[in-house]
């Protein structure tokens, strides 16, 4: 008994001599995760408490209605209800119009028989992904300006009326979605193009012998080859249905379209950081995070039920 524990101790000592540097290295990022990711989670309890500037979250008194006071307040707040609707609306349109776009572009690029031209197209299409939303908003403002923007000048010269792309709620929503596609469609093809390289080329050779045309190739070889990737990305996208970007709506909005552009992240910024209603906005943030996790898990479970791999 004694001897084995001595051997054990020696083994542990050896192990530590070999690996203590690894633990030392890892301690820095782990400390980062604890401080900047896990400690904020303890602040989440503010959602159920009356915020007090002098007390720590643990000492603050509970809010009324069994702590759910601020959730009730949020759902009675018209600004929040609008933000909720706008978030769902914009994310839904992004999903319906934006999700298929990179798949279509990847199929196009895959069918393109000129390799150098294909590379050029890819390089150009990836570029907008590297521009910030502020810059894109600046570009859009100039391009879509109602009187002297290029698009409206062109429309006028062709005999059409000017279109208020950014200054009318309905047009703004579609401009918003279009700019999202413009920025990310090229970049998002990378994943699909990588998946396409994994499709066995013998399948195409066999289909050529059978005399299949382009559409049949796409329908029976390429799309089935992309299926797992599409499903994975769809799960992740569904998990994001209630998440809200901040940069994009914040940069693109203007006072004329506030009724559709104020999403949850902007609500939190306006009511929390500018308005100092910390309990209310923490409750809103918690609601949003929880819904996101639930949607992600539900989408994943659904995919697994239909025999797909899922994301975990």
């Amino acid at each position: 008994m004694k001897r084995s524990s001595a051997i054990n101790r020696k083994r542990i000592a050896n192990y530590l001599r070999k690996y203590w540097t690894l633990y030392l290295m890892l301690s820095i990022p782990l400390a980062y995760f604890v401080v900047f990711r896990y400690i904020p989670m303890t602040y989440v309890q503010i959602a159920f408490k009356k915020y007090s500037i002098v007390k720590s979250p643990w000492e603050m008194p509970w809010a009324d209605n069994n702590g759910f006071e601020y959730f009730i307040k949020a759902f009675r707040n018209l600004d929040f209800l609008y933000a909720l609707r706008n978030t769902l609306l914009l994310n839904f349109l992004d999903l319906v119009l934006g999700f298929p776009a990179p798949i279509i572009l990847a199929l196009l690029l895959n069918e393109l028989p000129f390799p150098r031209f294909k590379r050029l197209t890819q390089s150009v299409a990836y570029l907008p992904h590297f521009l910030s939303w502020i810059i894109i908003a600046g570009l859009a403002k100039q391009l879509f300006a109602p009187t002297n923007g290029m698009i409206n000048i062109a429309l006028n010269r062709l005999g059409f009326e000017s279109v208020p792309f950014l200054n009318d709620p309905v047009h703004w929503v579609f401009t918003y979605v279009f700019l999202g596609i413009w920025r990310n469609v090229g970049w998002n093809t990378i994943i699909y193009l990588a998946a396409l390289t994994n499709i066995n080329p013998e399948l195409y050779e066999a289909s050529a012998i059978d005399g299949a045309n382009r559409w049949q190739n796409i329908r029976y070889i390429t799309l089935p080859g992309l299926r797992p990737t599409i499903i994975t990305l769809l799960i992740l996208a569904l998990g994001q249905i209630l998440s809200s970007e901040f940069d994009r709506p914040f940069a693109l909005t203007n006072p004329l379209v506030n009724s559709v552009s104020q999403v949850i992240s902007i609500f939190v910024y306006r009511y929390g950081i500018r308005g100092l209603q910390f309990s209310l906005t923490t409750a809103v943030g918690l609601f949003q995070s929880l819904i996101c996790v639930i949607f992600l898990m539900a989408a994943n479970a659904l995919a697994k039920r239909f025999g797909e791999r899922g994301i975990w």
């Binding site: 990022p29 990711r37 989670m41 602040y43 929390g272 906005t281």
Partner: peptide, 26 residues
């Protein structure tokens, strides 16, 4: 040793986020 635990701790932060205000207050 502990690699799985570290992995889980790190990956969890990808899926659940405390939100803007808790970070601000921290």
């Amino acid at each position: 040793k502990g690699r799985r635990l570290f992995n889980t701790l790190i990956l969890f932060t990808m899926y659940f986020n405390a939100g803007t205000i808790p970070h601000y207050l921290l």
